[in-house]
Design a binder for these strands. Structure first.
Lengths: 195, 195
DNA sequence: GAATTCATGTAACTTGTTACATGATTTA
DNA sequence: TAAATCATGTAACAAGTTACATGAATTC
């Protein structure tokens, strides 16, 4: 329901090839939407067959030819329509595998879950560090596509990623304390039972 | 990659029908994973054909018969294997449509984006209110399936949902201020240009 | 009398993933 | 000389959505 809108949105900035799109995608949209090159090429083909984009071959020397896609007027209209109706956030489909696993946490030993939470915290902190570098990437890309005014919106989304990741890390830290607390309480109980 | 694990996890608590699963699912896992009844029935069929669950028909009077599914030893083994390897969080596929739309926010009028952020905040606050009621639902379900010890883990996940939603609402509130701030600055600029 | 609940599903479709293929050029 | 980069894709598969069908009992 959405990758082809992301493609239209990018082509709305500037014409580019599937490969170019993937390069920009990986350092921006990829933080909140994922896609493989194979899907990108297929979507581009389907968008072209529906007349929402058109392509021209750009020959290159020493490198494979490029197929540069342009958004058509019809594509732009479809994209604007899509942008004008945000669906209700509460009805958006959600996929959060980590939560499913914690939900079924009783199937694990306490130590195993503690390990997974620890890994989660570590990865979350790494993510926050790499997000700090995205600020610069945003500057580079917005200049590259000749749209410095996009920085504001990309920055908003970056901030959302940071705030959600911070909240997740905080949650995992507190959960770890709760889990370990439960364990030490249990130990105490066991110790007093033994007396 | 995951709904059938959620089904196995639930059947690991207690045997139930597809319809029962959906009822519990909608008030719990649904907050972090979505699924339609049609998919649930299909997954149950495929799990049965692979020998991970087995079913018996429970006749009812005045209501349609129920097909009660039980997890098999093999199903339990598969579920435990899955629980024991959490994938890296950073590599998990993400799908966040709202962020895509904000990313392409320049395609909208400022007022339109402000409206969408306002709606987001309103819905987020409603979500937080309804999450407050989930505490009770957790109690009911954990007693219903005869597993009061699950409350702890379900509570952890609930807390995660709350913290992330709170962060999202805070983000939207701050974004709205930034957007409006930008607009009033622009107005001032326009006003001084007019002088 | 209409809508909702209970309970099962099938079929067609869309979206996303994995694995494979090609082939020149550049970097380690 | 092996691996990565550039650049295109196809085919098979897995997962999820939408639309449809059935039919009794209950609630509005």
């Amino acid at each position: 329901m959405s990758l082809h809108h992301a493609i239209l949105g990018m082509l709305n900035y500037k014409p580019m090839s599937g490969y170019d799109f993937k390069a920009i995608f990986d350092e921006s949209i990829n933080f909140f939407w994922s896609a493989k090159l194979s899907q990108i090429y297929r979507e581009l083909g389907s968008l072209e067959s529906r007349g929402l984009v058109s392509s021209i071959i750009e020959p290159q020397t020493g490198k494979p030819d490029k197929k540069i896609y342009h958004i058509t007027d019809e594509g732009r209209a479809i994209f604007r329509d899509w942008m004008n109706k945000f669906p209700s956030v509460l009805r958006a489909p959600i996929r959060e595998e980590f939560s499913i696993r914690v939900f079924f946490g009783s199937a694990l030993q306490k130590e195993e879950l503690e390990y997974q939470l620890g890994k989660f915290i570590k990865e979350g902190r790494e993510e926050l560090e790499s997000l700090a570098a995205v600020e610069k990437i945003i500057e580079v890309f917005s200049r590259e596509i000749g749209k410095p005014e996009e920085r504001f919106f990309w920055g908003l989304v970056l901030k959302r990623g940071r705030m959600i990741t911070e909240a997740s890390v905080r949650w995992a830290e507190e959960s770890l304390v709760e889990l370990s607390g439960a364990r030490s309480k249990e130990r105490k109980r066991n110790a007093s039972n033994r007396r």
